[in-house]
Nucleic acid binder design. Sequence first.
DNA 1: CAGTAACCGAGACGGTACGTCGCGTCTTTCA
DNA 2: TGAAAGACGCGACGTACCGTCTCGGTTACTG
Lengths: 214, 214, 214, 214
Amino acid sequence: MCSSPTTKRTGRPRSADADRAILAATRIALAEQGWGRLTLGDVAARAGVAKTTLYRRWAGKNELVVDAMAALFEEQLDLPDLGSLEADIRGVVLRFAELLNRPETRTALMAVIAEAAHDDALRVRIREAIVDRQKHLVVLGRKRAQERGEIPPEDGAADAAAGPDRDNLIFDVVAGAVVHRVMVSSEPVDEEWAGRLAVLLVVGLAGLHTAQDL
Amino acid sequence: MCSSPTTKRTGRPRSADADRAILAATRIALAEQGWGRLTLGDVAARAGVAKTTLYRRWAGKNELVVDAMAALFEEQLDLPDLGSLEADIRGVVLRFAELLNRPETRTALMAVIAEAAHDDALRVRIREAIVDRQKHLVVLGRKRAQERGEIPPEDGAADAAAGPDRDNLIFDVVAGAVVHRVMVSSEPVDEEWAGRLAVLLVVGLAGLHTAQDL
Amino acid sequence: MCSSPTTKRTGRPRSADADRAILAATRIALAEQGWGRLTLGDVAARAGVAKTTLYRRWAGKNELVVDAMAALFEEQLDLPDLGSLEADIRGVVLRFAELLNRPETRTALMAVIAEAAHDDALRVRIREAIVDRQKHLVVLGRKRAQERGEIPPEDGAADAAAGPDRDNLIFDVVAGAVVHRVMVSSEPVDEEWAGRLAVLLVVGLAGLHTAQDL
Amino acid sequence: MCSSPTTKRTGRPRSADADRAILAATRIALAEQGWGRLTLGDVAARAGVAKTTLYRRWAGKNELVVDAMAALFEEQLDLPDLGSLEADIRGVVLRFAELLNRPETRTALMAVIAEAAHDDALRVRIREAIVDRQKHLVVLGRKRAQERGEIPPEDGAADAAAGPDRDNLIFDVVAGAVVHRVMVSSEPVDEEWAGRLAVLLVVGLAGLHTAQDL
DNA sequence: CAGTAACCGAGACGGTACGTCGCGTCTTTCA
DNA sequence: TGAAAGACGCGACGTACCGTCTCGGTTACTG
């Protein structure tokens, strides 16, 4: 979460309820006011907590919102096995789009990424708390597809090296395309669009495997 | 730009130098401080202009930054003909990544998109000033590929309807993937990555054309 | 008062109404809440003024209260000619005690003196804004008494040198005794007490003149 | 001191060392920071004591500082017999001025008096802990002077009634004048000034005895 | 080529939120 | 059961920007 004082001894311990209440209040406030109008004082008030308590745990708006988003992603993102790689992609795309269409996510996610552009610590925090969780879905999906025989297993040395690169590419394409569709193009991510993207990826991925020198 | 005084009358006209100085100062300030620390007072001071003058021309931070970004995109984005669809994609990907790696673009673009999540007027402004300019590149690239015979021309009625959808998909995938790679994954967009993405797209696009019912 | 920017040129000038409203609000708030509970935010609100406006003019609570007290002293302290030195002393003692019994003076005066104990600039400000005004009354009273022939004029060199010392002594005794009676002993300064103090001073002052070597 | 637990029972008894450490820390902190910047948390830290411990013994800053000052006055103020009323006055004036010039006294004494202006309980505490100790010196000095025959004994009924009034007047004049000289006029209380004040008082006091109807 | 209307700089204004500090209370663990 | 440690709710602090509003002074069109 935020604090991990290795040697915690005396004194009154921090309230775990407060953490939960603050993160929940953050999400609600984000949905209502948006990132720009979000006020830590308001979050504290909604959580029934003093402003100082909030500042004791988080360094600022950025860190707090990242943690709030991380909690949301953790409880929302998974990868149910839908039987085929294409279906898995369609499923996760729709799931991710649904998450991005929540008002709190719409306003918060791009904002923290923007802040992270000039804040290394924040970028690391985002990666650890949010991005890695998503990337894991790609790895999981690829393994399933290999088990199903939809894509070849990694056996050669060159292939084993290219594997992570392919994972990363797929990750950036899927996540990036959905985010761009939702946030920039402002058009719906429906079954049809998700289907087209899935076809593009499955076919294209096969092409990547074929092109040996990549 | 920003002001279109339909009825131009008497009195001293607004200084065009001021506009330029303000936009330039905005970009510099963005690069130095990032969106969050960007101050209109600071921009005015850098531009050697009174705050009042700035507010006479732009409604606020969002609009100002969108215009500053639009000017940057206008002068930076184009699509030189590199001889093949795959090469064109590689080229535009590298060009776009280069643009996104400028410090002012990194912080500003995501920030205005975040603000646009709950501001319709801003979203329209972004689309007109920035997004449409990028999307035009996709259309142009597709037409060139059709002229070269790399992808089939739109002849059937079903195909003509699917064309714009494909353009939009390609647009979201290319732009989204590059943005995600640069901003979220924080990994380099180099020749290799751009090549992989181009292969994925060219092969995948062919798959899309094959799958008639999409 | 507080600001005397010798070269004031461009820009919106400061509102003189604001100064007056703030000082008046300070006095009222002092009377109601006392020094300890006095809040600059509250003063600003009472004055119908933004907190920033207040801070633009005064460095803090101390300076503001000194100026508010100074305004009060200026409008309240004078020395009507009551016909004799003894009567003049009785008069000014009663007048000063009345001033000290106002709730705003009771709470504010000692507090700023306490703060001045470790703040040289504040001590100077108090002296210039408040103390010198009181001390002037002593000088005036002495001159009147000399004109009346109640005390000898300064003619000798030694006497001329001792004059200011005597003035200062009288000043400290009168002001100090009244303040101590009101603030520390918490007993009334009535005609009887004022009369006794006046006798003490008039007789004692004659003794001082007699004691040549002092 | 402050707590008189009538029924002393079981459990760990309160540490008397803590009381002393706290009062000493209070004096040091007062001297360093002044009243306004004095922090109970800081006092507790200096005393090596938990804030809780401090609050168990004193109700707040005011009470704590009054007790710290009382301890200081108790160990510093006395009235050695210097052979004459005038010499006794000179002596006590110099002694009191010396006390007032300590940094902790300068800031603390005026501050608690200011607080007492709107806090009756505090005023009583100050009177009992500090003022009465000083006033006793006046009574003692007057008795010595009567024994020496410098001033007439109280024999008449009218005189017996006027006696306490005269004591109180002398008390307010001496204490007030010294405080005012030191704190407000910020000028030194030296042999010369003390001598002049003593002459003023001795001569003036004779005048008061002469004026029977006062 | 004089008037004048709109511009411009400077900077004070009423606000809102900030992040910090100290208060006095509380809840722990330790001795 | 008292004391240390320290988190807690609270409220004020002084600061930073916001976007607006006077000001005096400056253009550059227009009559």
